[in-house]
């Protein structure tokens, strides 16, 4: 049974290995070219292979040398922060800027266990007004403040 002695190094290595491997795979279709006339695939292929090697090295070292563990991770902040971004992305075109900001603020606030509803609602409305004034009125961005059914 192999034991991971340095989880930070090991998993970082695996991450680089996977990304490098994917880049090698998807990059194989681009023409490599020669040193004098480098094709579009030259740099990506070289870099991808370097990454695969670095990943292997790191993962290997993570098995041999011991080191600190990975800092504890809470599920709640991740789910709500990423959730808020994604929901904002899904809503902005469907309902407009102001409602999307309100929803994103509320979802994001849930990431903190100290969240208070009254405070959050005031903040959400305040931010919606601020964004509408700043981005649409002052900076003239072509965004719809409300876009019901548009």
């Amino acid at each position: 049974m192999i034991r991971v002695k340095h989880p930070q190094d090991f998993w970082a290595g695996i991450l680089f290995l996977v990304v490098g491997g994917l880049a090698v795979w998807f990059g194989r279709v681009y023409q490599f070219g020669t040193a004098t006339k480098m094709g579009p695939g030259y740099m990506p292929t070289v870099l991808s292979w370097i990454m695969v090697l670095l990943g292997l090295f790191l993962a290997g070292r993570g098995l041999l040398e011991s080191g600190p563990g990975i800092e504890r991770s809470l599920i709640r902040p991740q789910v709500f922060i990423i959730g808020a971004i994604v929901i904002f992305g899904l809503l902005i075109e469907r309902v407009g800027l102001a409602p999307a900001v309100v929803v994103a603020t509320i979802v994001a606030s849930l990431a903190s266990k100290e969240m208070r509803w009254k405070e959050t609602l005031i903040l959400a409305v305040g931010l919606a007004i601020l964004c509408a004034v700043l981005f649409v009125k002052l900076l003239g961005q072509p965004l719809n403040i409300f876009a019901w059914g548009a």
């Binding site: 808020a84 971004i85 904002f88 992305g89 900001v101 994103a104 603020t105 959050t120 959400a124 931010l127």
Partner: peptide, 8 residues
């Protein structure tokens, strides 16, 4: 939440 909204 303010930072998040501004970034989005």
């Amino acid at each position: 939440p303010c930072i998040l909204v501004f970034c989005c």
